[in-house]
Design a protein around this nucleic acid. Sequence first.
DNA 1: AGTCGTCAAGAGCAGCGCTCTCGAATCAGT
DNA 2: ACTGATTCGAGAGCGCTGCTCTTGACGACT
Lengths: 232, 232
Amino acid sequence: MNASRTARERVRAELIREITDIARRHLATDGAPGLSLRAVAREMGMVSSAIYRYFPSRDDLLTVLIVDAYNAIGEAVERADATRPRDDFTGRWLAACHAVREWALAHPHEYALLYGSPVPGYRAPEDTIGPASRGTIVYGRILADAQRAGRLAPPPMCPPPPPILSQDAEAVRAVMPGVSDDVVARAVIAWTGLFGMVSFELFGQFNGVVEHRAELFDHNMTCLAHLLGFSE
Amino acid sequence: MNASRTARERVRAELIREITDIARRHLATDGAPGLSLRAVAREMGMVSSAIYRYFPSRDDLLTVLIVDAYNAIGEAVERADATRPRDDFTGRWLAACHAVREWALAHPHEYALLYGSPVPGYRAPEDTIGPASRGTIVYGRILADAQRAGRLAPPPMCPPPPPILSQDAEAVRAVMPGVSDDVVARAVIAWTGLFGMVSFELFGQFNGVVEHRAELFDHNMTCLAHLLGFSE
DNA sequence: AGTCGTCAAGAGCAGCGCTCTCGAATCAGT
DNA sequence: ACTGATTCGAGAGCGCTGCTCTTGACGACT
């Protein structure tokens, strides 16, 4: 009975996989707004209503694509971090930055789905927050390791963060155990600076102004590394 | 003959104004993807096809909304900058930052239209680049004024930018006359950091993590002011 | 008075998300 | 092996979208 049940469920799982594969391809080429269940069904030789047996709504299909994308970029950051010696904190930070940028350039529509304008009606379900924090966790570990190793210089010039922010810092310490409040504050600056840079490049804000994006990115991330305070 | 022609053109201009007003309201409440020409026409008591007499396509309507939004945020930054003494560079920078954030919080969908995911098929026409740079021009003037006044300290810790970036710096100097390459590089960091911060807040990346967003924003922008190098 | 341009209106096309119903296939329990 | 319950694909259909084309009326200029 187990074999027979899995027979039906196996073809079902296979179909779900095929749907998400086609959808991912459509997302990569046409972007999220152009993703249509009817088009996916058409490509599968199905009638459009049959798709709803597997995904109750377009948003549900979008959700698995979002989760996949979060996992993909998270894994890219993890692998980049792993290529550096554990005590080369600047190198690990730069590797993580480049992993984010390169993944974003290779998957612009997926990146836009994760870090661009939120879809007005869409509400992210719980399943997304786990994969969403994979990259952040790597980033937090770099800073936590550096602080533990005593290789984070005292804040070079930032004023101490106001005490109110301690509560938020406490939440951030979940992925950055043991770091002080001022490091958390600078971590947010560097993290948002990284994504601000990538978003500006990808969303066209640099068009006609900045041409040497790779070099500018590299330089700016190096600068942010100094702001973070890694000591040589 | 001039009077009659203007009579006809006046009602035409009035209708165009009414269409854009309603469209702007729909954009503000429903977001860009929910903006529909048919809904606007319905609200005006027109039939949908009549709208196309005034806007040949949905993208054309979206373009004037984009231009309006760029002008609105640009003007907000200009006014904020004007409230501070000309030689209070840190104050001018912080005022500009808060103007951006507050405008974005008040007009989230417009902000997303400007700085969020680009619409896949949409190609921004020439008319948008002028209004798009209004805010950046203010920002550039603050830095140029500071450098001219000798109130920009030498780079505190960033390495000098690679020579390749000089070409891009030359382009940036169009809105930032007379500033050196390293200031341009740091300017880009601060500028992308500002928008990275606002985008993260607006697009939900801080959800469940950062609660005291105003305080964090203020602190981080102050930190970026130090990175820019304004001397007291 | 006649002509020409402008306009609103309507019908229509192809696409979309999504729902419902109806046979057919498949499964589970006897 | 048969039967009752699920599951599934197919089709029709609803209301919505952007956009096109045609028709008929109104107003301005000659």
